[in-house]
Design a protein around this nucleic acid. Sequence first.
DNA 1: ACTGATATTATGTATGCACATAATATATTT
DNA 2: AAATATATTATGTGCATACATAATATCAGT
Lengths: 230, 230
Amino acid sequence: MIKKSHHTVRQSIQQRIETGEWPLGALIPGEIVLAAEYGCARTTINRALQALADAGMLIRKRKGGTRVCSMPVRLAKFAIPIVREQVEATGCQYKHQVVVNILKVPEKEIAAGLNLASGEKANYLETLHFANGKPFAFEQRWVNLKAVPTILTAPLHEISANEWLVKTVPFSSGDVVFYATNAEQRIADAIETTLGTAIFVSDRTTWFKEEFITKVKLYYQAGFQLYTQL
Amino acid sequence: MIKKSHHTVRQSIQQRIETGEWPLGALIPGEIVLAAEYGCARTTINRALQALADAGMLIRKRKGGTRVCSMPVRLAKFAIPIVREQVEATGCQYKHQVVVNILKVPEKEIAAGLNLASGEKANYLETLHFANGKPFAFEQRWVNLKAVPTILTAPLHEISANEWLVKTVPFSSGDVVFYATNAEQRIADAIETTLGTAIFVSDRTTWFKEEFITKVKLYYQAGFQLYTQL
DNA sequence: ACTGATATTATGTATGCACATAATATATTT
DNA sequence: AAATATATTATGTGCATACATAATATCAGT
């Protein structure tokens, strides 16, 4: 083994796990032993093992050593997408259309979820996203004006609120909920399907340093599938 | 700044991005400058910056330097769960029940998806997962007998096929599709809802070194939500 | 036996150094 | 002026070393 870079070592070790040389839950050799075996410095082995531990493939403990994760936490990752990119990824042409853009006081339960004072207005937007001219998703969005006052002057007819916010607001945390729902009449009309059709919905709330920024519900076209890889 | 470990440096730098000190797309100081500023070695800065780059917060290029990612790819991660853990996480008691466990030849389209020779039998399982005695999810699963012959002797009444496979088969790759569907009568009966109710479905196929292992469809109870964080 | 001090061990972290590599800027040649 | 060579620069990677830290093993004292 003349392997060198931690990438190569990492890959090699991953293989040895995958082929079953080190079965699930087994203790693998220490860094020094591996370093000798691969003919590299312990530092290099360390980086490789740490990377694998980050990936959830190994569990490391001082003393106790490193062992193969017995119940591997397989993480499915997916990029929270710009709808435009989602559409264009399927080879379709993207278009969007702002249907509603008003200021209004949200209903109580929503205002609470948004962390807004009662009676405070927020920017409410409804946008239709199209793929090759057909409705792809229907978006309902609340934007906190205190956090992002400039949204009022943003050219939302050229760039969707979705994309504008990602490009403008620095890193933020948030949570996403996915669920299925039977289409109400309004939604059914918007995405051109029939009442009661099962619709895939993503509901996302975004925060920036404890301050609410935006909450968006996306109703995808009937038959939509969210694909991710392990 | 007496900050030391790369963790601390990483956090500090992340803050400076989040507070807007370095806006989206901006070029940040080089490693040497930062090392001087933080009073640590360049290596330490390097590790911190690399970590942030891995997290999708920075983009680094030899020469050209490091800049804040202008269109941050926020990755939503979620663990592909053992259903039991999913149930227990909500504080409910878990139980499962194997409804069907037979060998049969899958339909053509499924066999193709499973990479099985035509006419070849596979293990077909139907399992009901319960939370506090109420149906939580209905599982339909195909298992490749050539890959995992021991499934036939597994105690599937004590440990669900789901969990047994995760504990037994080494790391594997796979893909997951989520979608919404209107419940057919069979499904509706199984999870005790009414015909046509919108159901959240996850459809997962798992491979081990190019060999098909298992394909599983999970129909979740009505109202189920998949929650993830950014 | 039980308790607590001490040594051992494996990983975690930091540092300094050297060289590799890629992209750019500058100088050189035609 | 255009093409080519060279220097510069910032990151990428590897190594040797040292010390830190946490968990365990060992051993002594009561």
